[in-house]
């Protein structure tokens, strides 16, 4: 079964049809998706700005990360679930949409940036936990994170203007 056929099968499934045929469902998914985005970006921005050297309510970066990351992850999970459900409603259209595909690439890049941060400079957090300005590696990770998430949100908004729902 080719990818195209799988996407079409998904599109023709009862669940996919149910989302498309009940007008309030899709905007409700979108609303929760935006709430999730606001929580992800809002909390990650506080951590990223602290990594760059702006002050937060915690002097310790480690404390700030431990305190806020559960909220970031919880909201990210909500964004993934609502995003998947929107994808199920129009799978072939999303797969044909350049903005959607780029958005996935940039989310992956943000993930890689985070993994590199955790595998490198974060291991020595005890040395720079309360230092302002933080080391360059941490500041770079913060700037990259903000830039990548901004791009994700911009691409996401463009999907709404470019998705070809009917074909």
């Amino acid at each position: 079964m080719s990818l195209q056929n799988m996407l079409l099968a998904l599109y023709e499934s009862d669940f996919s049809l149910w989302i498309r045929q009940n007008p309030p469902v899709f905007p409700t998914l979108e609303s929760f998706h935006v709430i999730a985005i606001a929580l992800v970006f809002g909390t990650i921005l506080i951590v990223d700005l602290r990594l760059i050297g702006f002050t937060a309510h915690r002097r310790s970066i480690d404390k700030l990360i431990t305190e806020l990351l559960p909220f970031t992850w919880g909201a990210f999970a909500l964004a993934v679930v609502t995003g998947l459900l929107m994808f199920v409603a129009n799978a072939p259209a999303y797969m044909n949409n350049a903005q959607f595909l780029w958005k996935m690439v940039v989310i992956a890049a943000a993930g890689i940036n985070m993994m590199i941060f955790h595998a490198t400079i974060y291991r020595r957090i005890a040395d720079w936990d309360v230092t302002i300005p933080p080391p360059n590696a941490a500041r770079t990770a913060g700037v990259l994170s903000i830039t990548l998430w901004l791009t994700v949100i911009y691409l996401g908004r463009w999907i709404g203007f470019t998705l070809e729902t009917f074909f």
Binding site: I35, A38, L39, V40, F41, G42, L45, I46, L150, I153
Partner: peptide, 8 residues
Amino acid sequence: LAIAILVG
């Protein structure tokens, strides 16, 4: 982005 900052 502004609503994200406000919500954060």
